[in-house]
Design a protein around this nucleic acid. Structure first.
Lengths: 145, 145
DNA sequence: GCTGAAAGTAGACACCT
DNA sequence: AGGTGTCTACTTTCAGC
C-alpha cells in the first residue's frame, strides 16, 4: 500500500503537520487550491492511509513529566515480539517500543515524572519473566523533536 | 511553568490527542461541557503551553519510508549538546535526537527509505569531525506508537 | 466559570467546467 | 481532475446566571 503523491499532496500534508486545525480555505491559500479541492485531497490521503489521523501535541514537561529514558531490553532465548509488545504496553510510561538488531532485543522509550519514577518503571519491566537484563540511558538534553 | 490541570482538562486533552479536528461540540459531548466552555479551556491550555500545537500523523511507510534505526553517537572529549544538535539537524532523516547518560553521548532516531539509505545517513553523520564512533540498531518490528 | 442565543464562518454537497 | 454556489452546521462573542 504505497501511496503515490504529487507536489500538491506533499504541500497539503506539510500544512496539516504544521497546523492540523487549519481550515481548508487557509490550506488552499497556501497551496493554490480552492477549499473543496483541498478537502477532496485530504479525504483521499486519509482514506489511502498516508495521513493516519490528527492529534494534539502535548508538552509532557508542562504536565510534570520532566524525565525520559531509553531502555534496552535483553530477553530470554525465544521471546516473540508480540510477547514483548503485550508486556510493555501495560506500562503507560512506555511511549514507544520496538525490536531491534544488535545485542539488545528491544528498545523502549520511557517518559516519567522524575528519575525515581523512571527507576520504578524499569524495575517493573525487569521483573517480567522473559527479561534477562536491561540497560538504560537517561535523556539529558533533547536536541530534536 | 508547570500547569495545573483538573480532570476536565485531562479529558479534553485526551479527546484532542485522539482527534485534533474534532469540533468543540463533539468534545463537549464527551466530557460533559458546552462548546464555548470547551473552547475557553482549549485556548487556555494552548496559551499555558500544555498543548503546543495540532498536527497530522503521517504514516512514513505509506510514503515509502519503510526503515528506521537508532544510532548511538560517541563524541570527542568536549563536544557541546548544541554542536551535536546543529550537526544532526542538517540531516532530515534524523527525526529525533538527544544527549544521554551512559557510554554513548547522544542517541539519534533515523527514518529512511531502506537499509541502504540508513547506511548512507550514518556514514554522513560519522563523517562529522566530533564523532569518534557510532553504534546502530535497525528497527525490526515497531511495537508501540 | 458555565449556559444560552446572537452573528459570522467554515464545511459539505451537488453541479458545472 | 478543480471551481462555484448554496445550505447546513459549527465557531465565536456577548449577555445573563
Amino acid at each position: 500500500m504505497l501511496v503515490k503523491l504529487d507536489e500538491l499532496d506533499r504541500a497539503i500534508i506539510g500544512a496539516l503537520v504544521d497546523d492540523a486545525r487549519a481550515t481548508y480555505a487557509e490550506i488552499g491559500g497556501q497551496v493554490g487550491l480552492s477549499a473543496p479541492a483541498v478537502k477532496r485531497r485530504v479525504d483521499r490521503l486519509v482514506q489511502q492511509g498516508a495521513i493516519t489521523g490528527f492529534t494534539a501535541r502535548v508538552e509532557p514537561s508542562a504536565l510534570g513529566w520532566t524525565t525520559e529514558a531509553y531502555v534496552e531490553l535483553f530477553c530470554r532465548g525465544k521471546t516473540s515480539p508480540a510477547e514483548i509488545g503485550l508486556a510493555v504496553s501495560r506500562h503507560p510510561e512506555v511511549v514507544s517500543a520496538c525490536t531491534v538488531t544488535g545485542e539488545a532485543d528491544a528498545l523502549l522509550h520511557i517518559r516519567a515524572t522524575d528519575v525515581r519514577h523512571v527507576e520504578q518503571v524499569i524495575e517493573r519491566i525487569a521483573a517480567e519473566p522473559f527479561v534477562t537484563r536491561t540497560k538504560s540511558a537517561i535523556v539529558l538534553t533533547r536536541l530534536i523533536t
